[in-house]
Design a protein around this nucleic acid. Sequence first.
DNA 1: ATTGCAATGTTATAACATAACATATATTAT
DNA 2: ATAATATATGTTATGTTATAACATTGCAAT
Lengths: 154, 154
Amino acid sequence: MSMKSKSTSELKASIHRVEEICKSNKLGLTEIRKQVFEIIVKNNKPIKAYEILDKIRNINNKPSHPPTVYRAIDFLIENGFVHKLNSINSFVGCFHPKAHKECYFLICKKCNIYQECCDDSLKDRISKTAIHNNFVISNTTLEIEGHCLDCSQK
Amino acid sequence: MSMKSKSTSELKASIHRVEEICKSNKLGLTEIRKQVFEIIVKNNKPIKAYEILDKIRNINNKPSHPPTVYRAIDFLIENGFVHKLNSINSFVGCFHPKAHKECYFLICKKCNIYQECCDDSLKDRISKTAIHNNFVISNTTLEIEGHCLDCSQK
DNA sequence: ATTGCAATGTTATAACATAACATATATTAT
DNA sequence: ATAATATATGTTATGTTATAACATTGCAAT
């Protein structure tokens, strides 16, 4: 599988799914939160908080400040709609929220496109490793950096 | 296995090992680099760059600046003597440098002690996941946060 | 001795993130 | 409908993490 950016319809579906989840769970998907989510998912690549801030400023044509963005991000992460990539201080949308709270990633260093890789065998293996060490997992960061098929062929 | 801090002899051995590796590989283990390495390994817990900086200032009793510490850290990471935990912006010593360049971690949120967990089956599983996605790995961040045996029993 | 190079010193600032408090908006209970 | 409450946002300031850029030092090779 090569790493492709999401189609317009996938994006729409993703946004719609988040709206539905918020509606049915009575989560306040406010204008800003929605804007931030759309900016993140439409970006295809991991995006940084201050890049989001710039876009928010352009959209709304008024001053905005870091806390506004970070709060929206917090909300989106808490509810599993967005993930943070710690290795590059960037944020990505989640395309199957609620399916899992943990998410593993492949991140291409060249084209910057990312992809989730949360297969169960990997999850199991990590879980076994934790058990073997008498360790109770609360959250896992797995970020695999390298080159995707397209970029490693160039 | 519970997460214990390293004994004095383990620390000495670790420092000695690094010295030997540098000697045989003609790597310049300068005074500062050595100081930073010792601070990191002796700390038992992940340590932050500015905490290292404070300690360096105390040791040498003269002004030091962030680049001094970050450069030393870069050297130590490049040569596999130290790892960065991206999820908590902290640094830890590696107790088997050169055995592998990648390192996976269990990090206890309560006592902050960390432990490497680089078993081969986990390595294999990650490798397979990458292959399955036609992805060439250059480096992997795996940080499992949670509670160690001791802390989860308290 | 001079050149070249690796490491360190120094100043400044970039990049990332949150504390604290004020204000506004939505929700709920009366 | 209104007051009380909770939730969200605005705003200022600052804390935290990390690097750019350039000067200086020390040492090795010619």
